[in-house]
């Protein structure tokens, strides 16, 4: 393959005001690239697989950073680094699952600059796509990963539609479990949407991972107190314990009452193009005690509907086992 690793020519904007950033985002739209920690940016550019004309560095905008308590929960600026999230007392006291998930992202150096927003909107790691092939996700007409002999160990079990890539984000699973709200701005104003709706699959958005439209900036994440201090479980299984993306990860928040499950939210990473919420498991658990039988059934329900590819059927038992572990914890 032709191989590159030097940053190509690109303009750089470093706005300090929110309005300037929104204006730049609007002006450049698809031609602009919003820059957070940049850890999923430079590779694309160096490879010349994505060619924006301008980088819009959001790191100088203080309004996009920080973690603060609100009357209904907390709000996290999208440009807050994972390092800050891992170390933040508010998060550790109330939403520890997020700190835990953030702590399993990539490597320390990447967590030091990687932002929550960047981690959420990072692109999929499908190796075919990353090679710059003209696949569905790159605007083309075929999927290399879902073909008779393709090497697709890391690919999706659920909700694939032509593209079989998976969501790589560890924090996304935690935030969907916490029923977070995403705050999105553009020059016309704000909109908010649930984390679950924010992540979009290939059936609707085959060339993007989130509902973020050109010109829009994800500026914050709101966590309501609904799930604060709930019992939680997070686990990520990856080949290596540094750098590697989840083969399967699980995030669970659960409320129990009188030995039965009152409510829960359970989300798997690495099995679908979005964080995969286990709605049926949640419904099944409601009102049930967490007996071994219930847990075993829940695990079976979790993997219902999985469609395997050549190399990824191991994800079914892995996912089932993680569901069990989460519920037993």
């Amino acid at each position: 393959m032709p191989s590159y690793d030097v940053m190509p020519e690109v303009q750089l904007y470093q706005p300090t005001e929110v309005d300037d950033a929104l204006n730049l985002a609007e002006k450049f739209r698809q031609q602009g690239w919003l820059l957070g920690g940049g850890q999923d940016t430079y590779g694309w550019l160096k490879d010349r697989a994505k060619n924006p004309t301008a980088l819009i560095d959001l790191n100088d905008i203080e309004a996009f950073k920080g973690i603060k308590a609100t009357s209904t929960g907390i709000e996290i600026g999208a440009l807050t680094t994972l390092r800050d999230i891992i170390r933040n007392p508010l998060i550790n006291d109330h939403f520890e699952i997020l700190a835990k998930a953030a702590g399993r992202v990539a490597s320390p150096q990447i967590r030091n600059v990687g932002t929550l927003g960047g981690n959420l909107i990072q692109d999929t790691r499908c190796w075919y796509y990353r090679r710059g092939l003209a696949c569905y996700r790159a605007g083309g007409n075929l999927c290399y990963a879902d073909s008779p002999e393709a090497m697709n160990r890391e690919h999706a079990l659920f909700n694939a539609s032509r593209c079989v890539a998976v969501s790589p984000s560890d924090t996304a699973t935690a935030l969907v479990a916490l029923n977070a709200t995403m705050v999105i701005k553009n020059i016309d104003g704000d909109r908010e949407m649930s984390a679950e709706d924010f992540f979009v699959g290939p059936d609707t958005h085959i060339t993007q991972m989130t509902a973020l439209e050109p010109g829009e900036i994800l500026t914050g994440i709101k966590l309501s107190n609904e799930w604060s201090n709930a019992r939680y479980y997070f686990e990520k299984i990856a080949d290596r314990d540094v750098w590697d993306f989840a083969l399967v990860s699980i995030a669970l928040v659960i409320k129990e009452e009188a030995n039965t499950v009152k409510d829960s939210r359970m989300v798997c990473g690495g099995v679908a193009c979005t964080p995969y919420r286990l709605n049926k498991v949640e419904q099944y658990l409601k009102g049930n005690p967490l007996s071994e039988k219930i847990i075993t059934n829940a695990a079976k329900i979790a993997s219902q509907g999985a469609e395997t590819l050549n190399y990824n059927h191991f994800k079914i038992p892995l996912m089932e086992n993680l569901v069990k572990r989460a519920l037993r914890s």
């Binding site: 560095d57 390092r83 150096q109 030091n112």
Partner: peptide, 27 residues
């Protein structure tokens, strides 16, 4: 690696380790 996958380029920025290959000088 020039990709943030090895750490050989680690430098401290305000005391915090960063991959220099994956940091813009302007930042």
């Amino acid at each position: 690696c020039n990709r943030g996958e090895c750490g050989a380029c680690t430098v401290l920025i305000d005391g915090i380790p960063n991959y220099a290959c994956s940091t813009l000088s302007h930042s």
